[in-house]
């Protein structure tokens, strides 16, 4: 079981490393969207500081949408997905491997980049810390929920837009608790409730999304 998980993760990471442009576009999109806000709303420090968490989270949400289309489509087009479905191991496990690899190349870079961008908005160190913890808990959920959408829209023409329309509403709870945690810490309140809710979402997603995605893939293959 774990061998398969490691195999899929390693394979997807190697593929991502040989197609580095894909990782970079997501990251550059994230940096661009975040950097456009101060230019658009003006350099008023107080306002920027208040917006920071929201802007970073929304940008992370949008840029995670960018790479979702590629999660299964390349494997679908060259027939690898067929072979994966015929693997004598659990398809859910295989899907979990693909989700993990996807998060490592599209979610993790955003988490690492976020503190640098947060400084641009003059976020205090404490808020930055909570932002990163929130993103660490939240971005895997985005990848996992996104995978369901990606599996459902597999092989559809213009599936990219449909995918965003399907997935974005489902990501709202992550956005609310993620930004809520940062607001709480700036107001001097406890962040425990927000972070534990994010953690709960992560656990729920870990349990259910691989199975749901596997079923969606089976439907798409018909």
């Amino acid at each position: 079981m774990l061998g398969l998980l490691a195999l899929v993760i390693r394979r997807d990471l190697v593929l991502a490393m040989r197609r580095r442009a894909d990782i970079l576009t997501t990251l550059i999109f994230f940096v661009m969207v975040v950097s456009l806000f101060p230019l658009g709303v003006g350099p008023e420090m107080e306002m920027l500081r208040r917006m920071a968490a929201g802007v970073l989270w929304v940008a992370a949400l949008l840029s995670s949408m960018l790479s979702l289309g590629r999660l299964f489509s390349a494997d679908y087009q060259d027939g690898t997905l067929e072979q994966m479905m015929l693997a004598p191991q659990s398809l859910s496990m295989l899907v979990l491997g693909k989700m993990t690899a996807h998060w490592m190349v599209s979610g993790l870079p955003l988490v690492l980049m976020a503190p640098v961008l947060g400084l641009q908005f003059d976020m205090p160190a404490q808020a930055l810390g909570i932002l990163i913890v929130g993103l660490l808990l939240g971005t895997p959920v985005l990848s996992m929920i996104g995978a369901i959408g990606a599996a459902l829209t597999l092989g559809l023409r213009g599936g990219g837009v449909l995918l965003s329309l399907l997935v974005l509403p489902l990501c709202i709870p992550v956005l609310i608790f993620g930004t809520g945690a940062v607001e709480a810490i700036t107001a001097g309140l406890s962040v425990a409730s927000h972070l534990s809710l994010l953690g709960a979402l992560l656990v729920l997603a870990l349990v259910f999304t691989p199975w749901v995605t596997a079923q969606a893939l089976r439907i798409s293959m018909e």
Binding site: V14, L15, R18, R19, Q77, D78, G79, T80, E82, Q83, L86, A87, P88
Partner: peptide, 16 residues
């Protein structure tokens, strides 16, 4: 699935 092997129209190989 452990006892069968399928080879389809698509090669299922990665260019990279």
């Amino acid at each position: 699935y452990a006892e069968m092997l399928y080879l389809g129209h698509l090669n299922a190989i990665k260019d990279e």
